[in-house]
Nucleic acid binder design. Structure first.
Lengths: 269, 269
DNA sequence: ACCCTTCTGTACGATTCCGTATGCAGGCGC
DNA sequence: GCGCCTGCATACGGAATCGTACAGAAGGGT
């Protein structure tokens, strides 16, 4: 059975709790380039991506940007709300279009701060995000653009439903804090080696195994930590995967199209 | 009145709660170079530094290191415990000797996870730490060793009781993920300009204002976020600063020496 | 007083990446 | 079919940093 909720944080909830949360959720499209949070501004909604990709991006005064975190269907955008801070000094921007559930920050606080399984898993998710940031901090310092490109592609791919996604060299450059031309060179090498192919933003992972060889260890470190923190418990596997409350009424304009398409497995585990 | 508890997270607690926490605390010395947490290993204690400095350090397989977080009297070492993860993929190492309160991880979980003011402020501290990591990730990518050195010195200085502390070029190199020789060159420039002076590890900040000019914006971004999250509420300022329960019995071998020396103000605010 | 360790100063070729620029190509709008 | 915008390829001098190496200086131990 394919599930209707693909966001892992939501899908892992006990039926009762998911049902309760669900009434506060609305479905929204994530459009590439859309800025969800501006640096320092009040956070109005938290997002639970179902498809697509959102970046946490640190911005410098001269306009330089670096991605410091990445959120897809495995996580949530809006941890600062969860932590009791109304804003954060970084920007959240949609890199790969898709759709997400979202919830008003106020409602989220009200709903979640009472504790429960959801709360616990959000704490763990926060730890995972910190690991990501920490490792990226080290990675940015020690590894080449080429290695970091490979890690990025792997992390993106983990959060996608197919081995293909849309990211221009320009966008990647902003994520890695490098020049566009530098990305072209690095990506060119990967293409030459048959590891990836791409054309006008459409990137295709051709040989994932090789990509992992070219990547720095940071990718694996981060992934291992995610896996450790969100190890699937035996009983929840037996229970037939993610559930959705029977009585749910779909908010917004109905379920997003394509929700049952693509690969079934969530690869980030 | 000088306070006996200088750790800000503890000092900010209401009397009752501090008293409760205090029974679980023991006093320990932090010795330079001491490793408090090994990467990936179970965390046994959480630490609340009173003096000195602890680094969160990411380690690569080839032995390369980069600091991704820094903890002094403004914070706590052991956020992963708080978040429900028993370990984290980075190392905690004492950079500047001092002393701290520590608490068994189990007791900490039992004591803290019940909620209360402490819990709330730990959530905020987690946010501050994430900001630090995030900004450092960007900084490592975009700024020169010289700029980053300045930021580091400022962050260390903020957590010290005097404008002087012990850090060799070698140690700084490991924190910044750079070569020792590179640090010598950068530090040499600062000395030439009269901004700092140093001799065999003893570093003296001579002109803080200039140091801030040389530093990248990251220092200020991080500091601003700390200040925002831990803005002192009016009434707690009126109440005469940090308090300690009247009935406290000092754990360990009594209060550490020197606890009433040094500057009174906690500059990290 | 002397040794020995630790810390610092400095140098030099190699490497990575930047800043910038110029040209080509795919694909959309008209 | 023709422009035009966006995305990609490539080049070249220059800056930052690396890897490495060697030597001087400070200071503690014997």
């Amino acid at each position: 059975m394919n599930s209707l909720v693909r966001n892992r944080l939501l899908a892992a909830l006990p039926d009762q709790e998911l049902e309760k949360i669900f009434t506060g959720l609305g479905s929204v499209r994530l459009r590439s380039g859309e800025i969800l949070y501006h640096s320092g501004e009040e956070i109005r909604h938290v997002y639970f991506p179902e498809q697509g990709l959102i970046s946490l991006v640190a911005m410098m005064m001269d306009g330089a940007t670096v991605e410091t975190g990445i959120v897809g269907k495995e996580g949530m955008m809006g941890v600062p709300v969860f932590l009791g801070a109304g804003s954060a000094p970084y920007r959240a921007i949609v890199q790969v279009e898709g759709h997400a559930w979202r919830m008003k920050a106020e409602a989220f606080k009200y709903e979640v701060l009472r504790g429960g399984a959801f709360y616990k898993s959000l704490l763990l998710y926060t730890q995972a995000l910190m690991t990501q940031m920490s490792q990226m901090a080290a990675c940015n310092c020690l590894h080449t653009v080429e290695e970091r490109l490979c890690s990025l592609l792997l992390m993106v791919d983990d959060r996608m439903d197919s081995g293909e996604f849309f990211l221009t060299h320009e966008m990647i450059a902003e994520m890695l804090g490098a020049r566009r031309a530098g990305i072209t060179v690095a990506a060119g090498k990967l293409r030459q080696a048959g590891v990836i192919s791409y054309m006008r933003g459409r990137i295709h992972i051709r040989d994932r195994r090789s990509l992992e060889m070219w990547a720095c260890e940071c990718y694996r470190t981060i992934k291992t930590e995610f896996d450790r923190l969100f190890a699937v418990e035996p009983e929840s596997e037996l229970s037939g995967g993610p559930r959705i409350p029977a009585t749910v009424h779909w908010p917004g304009s109905g379920a997003p199209a394509g929700i049952n398409q693509g690969r079934e497995s969530i690869r980030l585990t």
